[in-house]
Amino acid sequence: MTAPFSHLDLLEAEAIHIFREAAAQFRRPVLMYSIGKDSTVLLHLARKAFWPQKPPFPLLHIDTTWKFRDMIEFRNKTVREFGLDLIVHTNEDGIKRGINPYDYSPSVYTDVMKTQPLKQALDKYGFDAAFGGARRDEESSRAKERVFSFRSPGHRWDPRRQRPEMWNLLNGRLGPGETVRVFPLSNWTERDVWRYILRENLDVVPLYFAAKRPTIVRNGQLLVIDDDRLPLQPGETPQMKSVRFRTLGCWPLTAAVPSTADDIEAVVEETLGARTSERQGRLIDHDQVGAMERKKQEGYF
């Protein structure tokens, strides 16, 4: 027989299998596209799963209006390049109320600008299934997540109502009012994502690579100032530092790390040797004990 597969080959095949199962079983799927590295891998796998067709579903981006400018540019370029359909949705009500990431606590901000608009968009377009890039290795409440994660009416996640998943059989029959979140990258780790980006030679947002950027230090976290909306406190003078991001989100809530890794090989090398997990850089997760679990129950990814 031919040589055995590497673990990345197996993970890729599994993700393609999941994409095809979901697309065949659900009426109106959508791919949650958040522009970051996981979304990049997710989209690449979706293209592989349905090639030579285009993925039979649109992309949905929940735009909080606080994403890095580089992210939006990358999003638009990607959609153009692959000829995909993109739906951008923002919680206009949140904008009107002036909800922003610095005056409000991370939990309020996330709820109003991420969780609520996600539910709004899913309801508005009648999506019954949403692909997401969540991984079980990210956080302890996600370690118990299913590949097909069912949501009751109102998009609530009830850990006790999740269906057992046996072998590789994926049952997509929805109960009344149910929708589903589908996680093709469930069994990937952060390191796999990078190894795969390198192997498949995928383009990612330039913010993942080190460059001189204007930074301030706030609450012990290194923030990159992307525009002039964030009121600076006394003593906070942006300084140019060579930094990059391990994870991307809303810029006032996403910490950078000092780094000189300015190409994909160097980033992979740094990630494989990294001593801290990526979510350390996300301020919303440290808000309270079990924060992610609560957010999930409320309908956050």
């Binding site: 673990h7 197996l10 190894r195 192997r199 290194l222 391990r246 740094e270 990294a274 001593r275």
Partner: peptide, 24 residues
């Protein structure tokens, strides 16, 4: 603030970009 410690490329020679032999 936690800096990502860069490690020397040669230390990583076997692991760098390595694909693992299957999954158990």
């Amino acid at each position: 603030m936690t800096a990502v410690t860069a490690i020397r490329r040669e230390d990583l020679a076997p692991a760098f970009n390595q694909e693992l032999n299957g999954i158990l």
